[in-house]
Design a protein around this nucleic acid. Structure first.
Length: 296
DNA sequence: AATCCCTTCAACCGCTCCCGG
DNA sequence: TCCGGGAGCGGTTGAAGGGAT
């Protein structure tokens, strides 16, 4: 009796994905698109559950994903949206292009929640924690009820908050060039920031791509991606936009290059460390010749 | 140098939602 | 309208890495 498992779990692999599995999944989806996830593992030759494939693609392999910590404006947006929507991570994620619900959920639980508590803000209710420490005396049921009430209020305002979110989405294009748009109500988040000026900016420095300075490769500074030192310019400092990222673990390079034409990319295995990397087809030749030179 | 502890985050699990028959 | 199957969502887990002792 009971619920039928989502897939036949006998003989299915679990745990971390290997580069080979990633490649199979990427190849399959690039060739066939996202179809029935249940059928994907069989068709792609993977010993994985369909759900696992979907999760891997959505949370890690998707080419339009941003990597790295959330920016200051993204954190503000998450806080604001969470105050309205509660733990509706997928709804929150839908307002942050390139971010996944899992990523936001993890970031909330590991960073934002902690910061809010340090600032005396209850991360559940988004209200100041009273000095009498009453929350610590609340039972779990009370807290749950409080959270439900919070969500209930939000549910009643769904239409209005949806409109707010819509406005926010519209303003996101502007945000790209000028931080956070004024069309969105960030009063609460701004209050947090005023209470703690160091919030976000200290721990999550906002560095624009054109501000990234790459130190001259030296004997003491090896790139984490094992780049040959000759990948960098010999000048003391080089702006990131001037660097040709000839070899990086995907998906970062996808983000740097932009994904206007997915077909222009090719997935190859990096012989040196066995990891997969994406390269623009027109740079494959450059890479191989340059790498050969640097390895010699 | 070894061990322990803490933090992070990818991945899993189980439930709900949605849609087609 | 009901039912079943697939997709999506949110909570939780556990491996890995890093810092502290």
């Amino acid at each position: 009796m009971g619920r039928q498992p989502c897939c036949d779990k006998v003989g299915l692999k679990k745990g971390p994905w290997t580069a080979e599995e990633d490649k199979k999944l990427i190849d399959f989806i690039l060739t066939n698109g996202q179809c029935c996830w249940r059928a994907v593992p069989k068709l792609a030759g993977l010993l994985r559950c369909g759900k696992s494939c979907r999760l891997r693609w959505i949370n890690y392999l998707r080419p339009d994903l941003k990597r790295g910590l959330l920016s200051e404006s993204e954190e503000k947006l998450v806080i604001e949206l969470h105050s309205r929507l509660g733990n509706k991570w997928s709804k929150i994620a839908s307002q942050l292009p390139g971010r996944t619900d899992n990523e936001i959920k993890n970031h909330w639980n590991t960073h934002i929640k902690k910061k809010l508590r340090q600032m005396g803000i209850d991360p559940i209710t988004h209200k100041p924690i009273s000095s009498t420490d009453e929350h610590h005396h609340q039972t779990g049921q009370q807290q749950q009820r409080q959270q439900q009430e919070q969500v209930g209020v939000v549910a009643g305002e769904d239409e209005r908050s949806d409109n707010m979110i819509l406005q926010c989405s519209q303003s996101q294009e502007e945000e790209k060039s000028a931080s956070v748009s004024g069309s969105f109500d960030f009063i609460e988040a701004d209050t947090f920031l005023q209470k703690s000026p160091g919030f976000c900016t200290d721990e999550v420095p906002m560095i624009q791509p054109d501000e990234i300075i790459v130190p001259c490769a030296s004997s003491t500074s090896h790139s984490s991606t094992s780049l040959p030192s000759s990948c960098f310019s010999s000048s003391p400092s080089v702006k990131a936009e001037e660097i040709q990222f000839t070899c990086m673990e995907w998906p970062e390079p996808m983000y740097f290059y932009g994904m206007d034409d997915f077909n222009q990319w090719d997935l190859i295995s990096d012989d040196r460390d066995g990891k997969l990397a994406f390269y623009p087809l027109n740079q494959l030749h450059q890479r191989t010749t340059r790498d050969q030179e640097s390895w010699n």
